[in-house]
Structures are given as C-alpha cells and as structure tokens.
Amino acid sequence: MPLVKTEAIVLAARPLGDTSKIVVLLTPRRGVVRAVAKGARRPKGRLTGGSVPLRRIEALLYVREGRELAVLSEAQVVWAPRELGSDWRRYLSAGRLLETALAVSAEGDNPAADYHLLLDALRLLEGGLDAGLVRLFYLRQLLANHGLWPELGRCAVCGGTVEGAVDIDIAAGAAYHPEHAPDAVRSLGAGSVRLLAGLHRPAVLRARQSREVVEGALDLVERLAAYHFDLRNRSAGLDARAQALLDRPEDESPL
C-alpha cells in the first residue's frame, strides 16, 4: 500500500458516518484524489483542520491500487485563506473556482499546472483582487493549460495579424478579422483583447479595468470553458441572487 506525501488543496468534503469525512483533494502530481479522512468530524481529530475546503495542506495518503478512495493519514494545514471566509462574495467566487477545478482536472494530463493555477487564483482572491478578474485569469489560463486557448492575434482565413477588435468562433477556436468572420461568431472589443493578452502580468491584473472590458472578456472565456469542459455550474449566479436579496427592501420578503 504505497504511502504518498503530497501537498493538496481541499476542493470538497462531505460527511462519512458520524465522525469521518470523504475529502476531494487536488494534488500537483495525481490530479483529483478522493480520500477517507477518519475522525475528521471530531472536534479534536488530527485531520479536522486539514479536511476543510479551500485549505492547502501537506497530506500523507495511503493510495491503494484499484480502489477509488485513498486514506488520508495526515493533514498539516499550510495555508488557510481567511478572507475567503469572512467575505461571502469572495467565498462564493472561490467556490466557483473549486467547482471548475473539480470538473476540469480529471481531464488534464498536466495536473501540476492546474494545481498551481488554482492556488494562484485563490491567492489573488484572498488578496482582494476583483472576483471577475480572478475568474477571468483562472479560466483563460486553464484553457491554455489544456491547449484550448484560441490564437486571438491571427486571422484564421487570411493568416494576417489581427489588431484591435476581433471576431471569435467558439466551436472552431479561431479568430477572424471582422470582414472575414463567418456567421454566429462572438465579437470581442479591443480593450478585452488587450486584457486577455496581458493577464499573466501582475501589473495588468492590478490595473484598473473598466467593467465593460472585463465583462466582455469574461463572457468569452465562460463560453469557451462551457464549450470545452463538462461544467455543472451549480454555483453560477449564487452571488448575484444573494446580492439581489440584500438590495431588496425587507418588506418584500415572504413570511
């Protein structure tokens, strides 16, 4: 029964009996690993702190060949993003990232890239970066990690360089000069194209971006991700609906 020492991000946890949990971990070498965390629901259990979603842990796992579930033997908390808990907006955004990571990471052949990308995104979110920008950064890079990011700077018809606004065919993963674009393409403004091109640079991430530019770029990456990955998107819209309740006058609430 091989013993594996690895770092991991806890993606999800659900109760197993009265005292244990099944945890879903994202690891850099093995991708998604599901494991039993015995005693993790006990207040004083060794694994209690290390089996909470969003935490980064140093894990010791017994991985049994042919078994779907590993056994989490040790879990030392390395990083617990505090702000993500104290701010419900960031928490829901982080949940969307975890949901996407869970859906996508089973498909990848480079789990280390997906692992470090999720960690970077969670750190950006914890650091206070706008949730829309973090999701944009995450999905853009995730698509690139899986070889699914379209070349925005070159027209698929004439091969010429595309500057400024661009038309994109989601299914074909191709970009076009507006005059060469086939029907049913998405148009992306020049500002959104520049933002997508510079997302890997911290200065671009930290720069003030207009809402229109971010939303245009986010719309494209969400569509690309939905087309290429089998996302369940249960978490989509939770933040908007929660905000709508805050904005609604209390006398309109049902009894």
Binding site: G95, L238, D239, R241, A242, L245, S253
Partner: peptide, 23 residues
C-alpha cells in the same frame, strides 16, 4: 452557503429569516 451544491441565500430561505426578525 455551499457553491458546489448550488446553495446560497435564496436556497437557505434567508429572506424569510429577515422578515421574521424584522417583525
């Protein structure tokens, strides 16, 4: 709140809680 299960403010009936406290 459980984003992976699609549970947020509406699903927890928090509008009803607010009305209860307000009254």
């Amino acid at each position: 709140f459980d984003p992976l299960a699609g549970i947020g403010a509406e699903e927890l009936g928090l509008d009803k809680l607010r009305r209860r406290i307000a009254e």
